[in-house]
């Protein structure tokens, strides 16, 4: 029943058929994006709802949702100095490592850009740290920083800088520096690649025009190069900030949060609370607090990026 049937139908019924057809067409279109919607539901929507429910309930890893406890877990988390300082350390670490690595990565990218062909070769070399599993990065640096037989202590003693080996990973500040160095080793190459790409989008003619106008190297960098890459640089900073907030593997391998709680990042604190102490209710509350803090810290950077992008248009 096709052409003929449509002909004899009342106009109203034809409208229903058309709407029904539109409904199926829309559903057909939806199947295109269904995979992403499912992925988002599983990895983002469901965890958020589930965490919220856990955070307000008495829950262990074995037996979740055993009664409503109100804001008790949030109150405990916000009064726990160990957790609060873990959050503070994570924020400071993310801001500092991102800034240092952006500056360093940008300088290396400038250097590689000037090296032309050789720079491209070096680029494929620095790709390797990025590909290295973070656990293995941690182990390599642990061997370098080890008190007995570590490369760094060996060198320091050989050149007479120190007489006794230093326990780098056993000292609160030095242990953070060690994690920072391993992080820098792994992620600066990524920033170099992104900065290199951003620099290569600057049209040749711009520099030549400035050269004709008599601008020196520094002037060209400050007034031309930097403004042109400001927008991508801010998005690279944002990306590294997000990656730094995920810090976990290096802490686990290099220090396991120690000495004491000195290098316990927020992520590591939550992991231990949930997986070792099975206190998932409180861990859920801590996770929500941490996620909120990340949002608050990254928001100004997002705004900055939007500002640069608008200026470009």
């Amino acid at each position: 029943m096709t052409a003929f049937a449509v002909e004899v139908l009342e106009p109203d019924t034809a409208g229903v058929a058309a709407r029904r057809h539109a409904f199926w067409a829309r559903l057909g279109r939806l199947t295109w994006i269904a995979p992403v919607l499912v992925a988002l539901a599983v990895t983002t929507l469901y965890p958020t709802v589930f965490l919220l429910a856990l955070a307000f309930s008495k829950s262990t890893l074995g037996k979740p949702f055993r009664g409503f406890v109100g804001i008790k877990h949030f109150a405990t988390a916000l009064q726990d100095p160990v957790f609060l300082s873990a959050i503070g350390r994570s924020v400071a670490y993310a801001l500092a490592t991102s800034m240092v690595q952006l500056a360093l990565g940008f300088l290396i990218a400038l250097l590689f850009t000037s090296l032309l062909k050789a720079g491209r070769f070096l680029m494929s070399l620095v790709l390797l740290p990025l590909m290295t599993p973070p656990v293995m990065v941690g182990i390599a640096w642990k061997l370098i920083f080890a008190p007995a037989g570590g490369l760094l202590n060996g060198a320091l003693i050989t050149y007479g800088v120190v007489s006794e080996p230093i326990s780098f990973l056993g000292h609160p500040t030095l242990a953070w520096l060690a994690i920072g160095v391993a992080d820098l080793w792994q992620w600066t190459p990524f920033i170099v690649i992104l900065c290199f790409a951003a620099l290569s989008t600057i049209p040749e003619g711009v520099h030549e025009a400035a050269l004709v106008d008599g601008a020196n190297g520094w002037q060209r960098f400050w007034h031309i190069t930097l403004p042109l890459v400001a927008a991508p640089l801010s998005s690279i900073y944002l990306l590294k900030l997000i990656l730094s907030f995920k810090l976990f593997d290096l802490v686990y391998i290099l220090t396991f949060g120690g000495p004491g709680f000195a290098t316990t990042s927020a992520g590591f604190a939550i992991y231990r609370r949930a997986i070792e102490q099975f206190d998932v209710g409180r861990a859920a509350a801590e996770t929500m607090v941490y996620a909120l803090v990340i949002g608050l810290v990254t928001l100004p950077v997002v705004r900055l990026h939007q500002h640069f992008e608008r200026r470009e248009l």
């Binding site: 990895t43 965890p47 992991y271 861990a283």
Partner: peptide, 15 residues
């Protein structure tokens, strides 16, 4: 959705 650290999804995905 990529901005949230994976620790957020750890416990829910475990269950």
């Amino acid at each position: 959705s990529y901005m949230a650290p994976p620790i957020v999804a750890l416990i829910p995905l475990f269950f």
